[in-house]
Amino acid sequence: MRYFFYPGCSMEAGAGSYTKSLEAVARALDIELAEVPDWNCCGATVASSVIGDAPAQVMSLRNLAMVEGSGLDVVVACSSCYMNLALANRRFQNDPRFRALATKSLAAGGMQYRGKVRVRFILEVIANDVGFERIAARVKRPLKGLKVAGYVGCQSVRTIPWEFDDPEQPVALDELIGALGATAVPFPLKARCCGASHTLPQGEITSSSCRDILESAGEARLMVTPCPMCQLNLDAYQSEVNKAYGTNFQIPVLFFTQLMAVAFDLAPSTYGLKANIVAPGPVLAQYGVAV
C-alpha cells in the first residue's frame, strides 16, 4: 500500500511524536508513506476568514496538484489539515464556479489540478484499506483490560462522508481500540470540540471544553486521539484545567498511533512517548512498556 502523506505544520512541529509513531506503525503494516513534496500550510481555521474561502482552498489544492500525476491517494493525519484539503477538493469536484476560479488561480502560480486526487483521513484508511482484522492480527501485546477513551475530535469526523462514520457518535476509533485488545469506554463527548482555536487568545474557553471532555471519558485510564491540536490541548493543558476547575485529571493522552505501536510491541524509541506531558508510563507499565 502506497500513499502520499501530507503532514501539515503541527505534525512537523509540536506533534512530532504523531508523525514518528505513524511512520513506525505504517512500517509495521507495510504501508509506504511518501511526503507530499514542498507542501504548504492548509490555512488551518484562519485563512478562510482572513482571505476568503476560495483563496484559502486554492492553497490546499496546490498540495494536491503536487501529486496528482502519481495516481496515489493523499493521506492526512491532522484533523484540521484533512478538513481543509478534503473540503477544498470536494468543492473543486462539485462546484463548477469554484473549479474555474481555482484552475485559473493555480495557473497563476504555474500549476494545474484536475480534481483526481483522493484525500483520505488516516483513520479511515486504517479502517478500510488495512482493516481492523489485520490490525488485530498484528497485535503482539494485547492491551487486555486497558480502558481507553477514543477521542475523535470534531473536524475530521464531520468532514468524512456520513457513510463511513457517524458525525457525532463515531465508532471507528472505538473499533480500532478494540482491535488492539483494549476496551473502548462509553464516551459521549468523543466528537465534541476541544476549543483549539481559542487556546492562545482565550485559553479559558479551551480549558472549559477540555474539562467537559476529560470528565466525559469516565473511567478511562488513557485517552487516544487522531488530532494534533486535541492532543496538545488535552495533554499539555490538562494541568491548567486542573488548576482552573480544581479537578485532578491524570489521563495520559496518546496519539492513537502511539497506542498501536505499543500494542504492536514496536521499539519505544520509534513512537515518542517521551513527548507526552501527562506521563503514560504508570498506565503502560503494567503491559511491560518502559517509557
Binding site: A15, D38, N40, V58, M59, S105, A107, G109, M111, A275
Partner: peptide
C-alpha cells in the same frame, strides 16, 4: 518535552508561486 520548536520551519520553496495563486484567487 520537545513540543515547542524554537526555530521556524523551512519556507515553502514555491512560496512565491503560492502567493501568486492566492492573489489571483
Amino acid at each position: 518535552h520537545g513540543r515547542l520548536p524554537l526555530r521556524p520551519p523551512k519556507a515553502v520553496k514555491g512560496k512565491k508561486e503560492l502567493m501568486q495563486m492566492v492573489a489571483k484567487a
